[in-house]
Design a binder for these strands. Structure first.
Lengths: 114, 114
DNA sequence: TTGACATTTCTAGAAAACTCGAAATATACT
DNA sequence: AGTATATTTCGAGTTTTCTAGAAATGTCAA
């Protein structure tokens, strides 16, 4: 993932309403949820929700699927995982941290008093 | 990690200069880097850098360590890992995804055509 | 204590993001 | 065609964030 994509994803998630939407869709899983259902679940006006859904879509964190009059949104797990990888990229100068590779657990602190 | 903390961390990272600072500190590792060195490395005015360092500190993503005239900043890996965990929390309705637990890889897409 | 350097705070202007009602668009049903 | 429902776009006002120079604060070294 490139920096500009990571920035877009982070900016998309750095907003209360959008984070709530994203988390809802992550928890719901691949089947996703219809826009009006999200609006209802989070008690958000349709126009506001639409604004935020567009942001999340633009960042590729969710994707829409037209189903007649309805639009089903679902989380894009690939993008999420790419973002997690980006954030821990080259952690600690390339020294392997934890086995998984997606989290960083350096061995010791730099100074004794900070 | 609570939602408000995650929001603070995401907002802190969702900015070009701050993301660059954070990534630099992640790559440098636990020993951290002096503010002036960061300023030089990223070619950023001291006052602007200070503004961003404060944001990152407030979000607990980095922490300062006074060393005489200097201030050494280093990444807070714990907070980073907590954020990663938060983002994948209850992924897919609690169904285990990948072994690590920090990434989510649902088995199949919801629909055949989206 | 004087001078040099490191960092933060103050300030104000510029730019970007958020909210949500109203209107527009699109699809479905009869 | 006409009506109902789902969703998006538009518009305008409000709030927040970013930038960076100038001034202030704090530390060291001679």
């Amino acid at each position: 993932m490139e920096t500009k994509n990571a920035l877009a994803a982070l900016a998309a998630l750095a907003q209360e309403s959008r984070l709530a939407v994203f988390r809802l869709l992550v928890q719901v899983g691949p089947d996703g949820m219809v826009a009006s259902k999200i609006s209802e679940a989070l008690d958000m006006p349709a126009s506001s929700l639409s604004f935020h859904l567009k942001e999340l879509t633009r960042a590729n964190l969710i994707s829409p699927c037209q189903d007649g009059r309805f639009v089903i949104y679902s989380a894009q797990f690939d993008t999420m995982n790419a973002l997690l990888a980006f954030l821990t990229e080259n952690c600690c100068g390339g020294i392997p941290c934890s086995p998984g590779g997606t989290s960083c657990q350096p061995g010791k602190a730099a100074t004794t008093d900070c």
